[in-house]
């Protein structure tokens, strides 16, 4: 039912979403922590920048990433001088783009979880001799666990569902940048509706199950 090309696209999508989610947990946690704790005047600015992918057309995001990461962009210059080549139209470039694209879906649930915990547990931990790092991992992470799970699920699912950014920055290279959403587009272009149905139906079922899991988790407020 699924061709080798379809399977390759599914595997690539899974790989992309997993790597992106892992990166986002590392990158998004400090950003969310800072946003939840800071009284800085640039909090609103940073919050708005993080949230931009929520409202921007993916093509706009993809376009600017293409320019920035491309051979004549500032990041492109840097990656070339480091001997890494340029990122657009590579799998690595796709991961970088996806991190930006899914950033708010990870940062916002984490920020809300951190804000709900408040400063008190950290103060309590400090009076019990725990250093800031120690108390983050032994108090904040366990208390924010529902937030971390929500963030990971949303980050993964949202990355699986991207299309516009992939097309702008990844193109359509089999086993490198051709993810499921692009493969569906190809099938439809080629009038292969039966094949498109299988993949599209699979995506529909996957997305529905993810959201169902998220919404039926007891006692957690789900970020919408």
């Amino acid at each position: 039912m699924l061709s080798a090309v379809d399977l390759a696209a599914i595997w690539l999508t899974f790989k992309l979403a997993s790597l992106t989610t892992a990166t986002l947990m590392v990158v998004g946690t400090p950003i969310a922590w800072w946003l939840a704790r800071t009284r800085s005047r640039i909090k609103a600015l940073v919050g708005a920048v993080v949230a931009l992918p929520l409202v921007l057309p993916p093509t706009v995001l993809g376009f600017y990433l293409l320019i920035t990461l491309g051979p004549h962009g500032p990041v492109g210059h840097l990656t070339q001088s480091l001997g890494l080549g340029v990122l657009p139209f590579t799998f690595a470039g796709l991961v970088v783009a996806s991190v930006f694209y899914s950033l708010p879906f990870v940062v916002q649930p984490l920020q809300q979880a951190f804000e709900a915990i408040g400063p008190r547990p950290l103060e309590v931990a400090a009076t019990l001799r725990a250093s800031p790092w120690d108390s983050f991992f032994t108090v904040i992470v366990p208390l924010a666990k529902p937030g971390f799970i929500t963030a990971a699920i949303l980050g993964f699912a949202h990355t699986v569902g991207e299309f516009g950014v992939v097309l702008m920055i990844g193109g359509n290279i089999p086993e490198k940048t051709r993810v499921v959403s692009v493969q569906i587009y190809d099938h439809v272009e080629a009038m292969e509706y039966a094949e498109a149905h299988v993949l599209a139906g699979g995506m529909l079922l996957f997305s529905f199950l993810v959201l169902l899991t998220l919404y039926s988790r007891k006692g957690t407020s789900v970020w919408k």
Binding site: R120, P121, E123, V124, A125, A126, T127, L128, R129, A130, S131, P132, S135, V139, P142, L143
Partner: peptide, 20 residues
Amino acid sequence: RPTHQRPLGYVFQEASLFAH
């Protein structure tokens, strides 16, 4: 000296046990 390096005990006004 940050709080965690001061040999003190602190009891807060409201219950402050770690819920987890």
